[in-house]
Nucleic acid binder design. Structure first.
Lengths: 318, 318
DNA sequence: GTGAAAGCGCTAACAA
DNA sequence: TTGTTAGCGCTTTCAC
């Protein structure tokens, strides 16, 4: 491994001058620059990133934390990593899996191994998590209002209200809802949208509601419940495309026709919704990934890069 | 930020002794250990990982390189990252996107930012890539036989032969094949399996073959071709579940019934195959992710951890 | 069992 | 424009 010291010895030029040409900071005469460039080539010099990290107290690495895998995670990593790469940042992916391990991962911020952290889904309380914000900026996909944690969330209340009205306009009077955990602010926003809708539309039945903490098997379970329901909802709205997809697949096994027997609506506008031709709600996760990164970048580099606009909308199947 | 130097000053004990209790290497008397542990708590000491990395010439970080996103990537990252975390390794995800950038990413190995590299899909030639193996072990998902690059591949020849026989046994005499690029050794293995099968089964027609370089839109394109085919194959076998899924969705839009009008078979045994109830071929990517990591771990730590067995097999729909 | 000292490879303030 | 110097925070011989 050639080091900057070897170059200095070979060229007789000081380490600092060499550092200047390698990093591109500061003035170096054309003459010396050429000599140094030559020597770099000759000795096949590659700067040691770790030494640089230590000296500069930054690693240009962002932690991507998610409690566990679900299909949208892949799509999200894709969006987040690409925007990060564009600005010269690496991203480390962590499946935290439990509270203790999530804390351990957040500690990487304090060990200086990570410059910043993005949290897709979390386990510990936001209060606990925010205490790590002293060591580096934190942003999240979740809907939170917390000092020191940036959240680029979409308020589901107006979106869901639109969806309910839209379904009502299409003639669906018995609508079922498959929702995420009430721990999420946006699940509560959805429930509130339903409650407010009910007051205005007493002819409509929105009482079929299911809540799930995770995506795993939720669709299959919901299908089972739907099949055994006394009065089957004519339409079902889901908190995630993947769950809707699983629901559809389970119904089809029982020869239920979708959308004829039951209209199924997803959320996310992910690849799978396109694939399975499921009407869905675009909640702009791609823009959210973008903005979540931009926030971290701005904090880290004292910049004011602008955020992208997000306009959630109903996406029809073909 | 408390450093080891602060602890030394506070306790009056030398840095080296403190280092010993922090890292757990070497003997320290119970008495001093207690004093140090106390001080660590009191000053809320957290070791700087970057300084450790510089000193130890390793970062415990593995690069996960993939040329671009496709749905299985998420599943793969999930498997790979979890096994890596189990052994204390971080994983950095990179979408290389083009040849130049792939090289730039591989250079992270030479800058010591990465201890090792896993390549899901690549752009440059294996000859080019293997030249980086001097700086750290490289493993891949792809089928390669190359000195210095570990490949935990499945030979598709026998698997595909089984699939062809299975379909033949089910009475499918006109079978279409949607294959990946001939640049892949396993695509060539599949083609060879088809050719050999044809010699033994002259009554069977296997000549409907389509090749795609990527997954993007391949399923929709194949559907379009199938719809306009003079003689539509009765069964179609795909190189990826996702492509098969897209094919099915496209056919359904044209009111073609699957599997009645056309049996569709995927490859990978991914989540989407389960979801859409597509018969598929389990090619054990989870085990492959595991083994690919184990190889890197063994190389890095001079160990001989055993690999997992892999037995590819046909997976029926329910 | 403990401490002194050297050094991983780089950068940046300061002086020249 | 360049060189000297002093670290970044940790680990690891080596000597006691």
């Amino acid at each position: 491994m050639t080091t900057i010291y070897d170059l200095a010895k070979k060229t007789g030029i000081s380490k600092s001058t060499i550092s200047r040409v390698v990093s591109g900071n500061g003035y170096v005469s054309e003459e010396k620059r050429k000599i140094i460039l030559n020597a770099m080539h000759e000795l096949n010099y590659i700067p040691n990133q770790v030494a640089k990290n230590l000296r500069q107290k930054q690693t240009k690495t962002i932690g991507f934390l998610v409690s566990d895998y679900f299909p949208l995670v892949g799509d999200f990593i894709n969006s987040f990593t690409k925007i990060a790469a564009k600005y010269g940042y690496n991203v480390n992916v962590y499946f935290t899996q439990n509270a203790k391990n999530e804390l351990k991962t957040l500690r990487l911020l304090t060990t200086r191994a990570l410059d910043a952290v993005f949290i897709l889904t979390r386990i510990n309380s936001w209060d606990t998590i925010s205490s790590y914000a002293d060591f580096g900026p934190i942003s999240t996909w979740q809907r939170v209002e917390h000092a020191h944690i940036y959240s680029n969330y979409i308020d589901h209340y107006p979106v869901y209200t639109d969806v309910l009205n839209h379904l009502d306009g299409l003639g669906y009077k018995r609508v079922g809802h498959v929702l995420s955990s009430l721990r999420n602010a946006n699940t509560r926003a959805r429930v509130k949208a339903i409650d407010d809708f009910k007051l205005k539309h007493p002819d409509s039945n929105q009482d079929y509601q299911l809540f799930y903490h995770g995506q795993h098997n939720a669709g299959a379970d919901a299908a089972d419940k739907w099949l055994h329901a006394k009065e089957r909802p004519e339409a079902m709205v889901f908190f995630a495309d993947f769950v809707a997809a699983e629901f559809i697949a389970s119904l089809r096994k029982h020869h239920v026709k979708v959308p004829q027997d039951c209209l199924v609506v997803g959320s996310d506008n992910s690849e799978i919704a396109k694939l399975m031709n499921i009407p869905t709600i675009d909640l702009c996760f791609r823009n959210q990934a973008h903005n979540a990164f931009i926030y971290l970048y701005n904090e880290l580099n004292d910049q004011q890069l602008p955020f992208e606009k997000q306009t959630p909308q109903w996406i029809d199947a073909d």
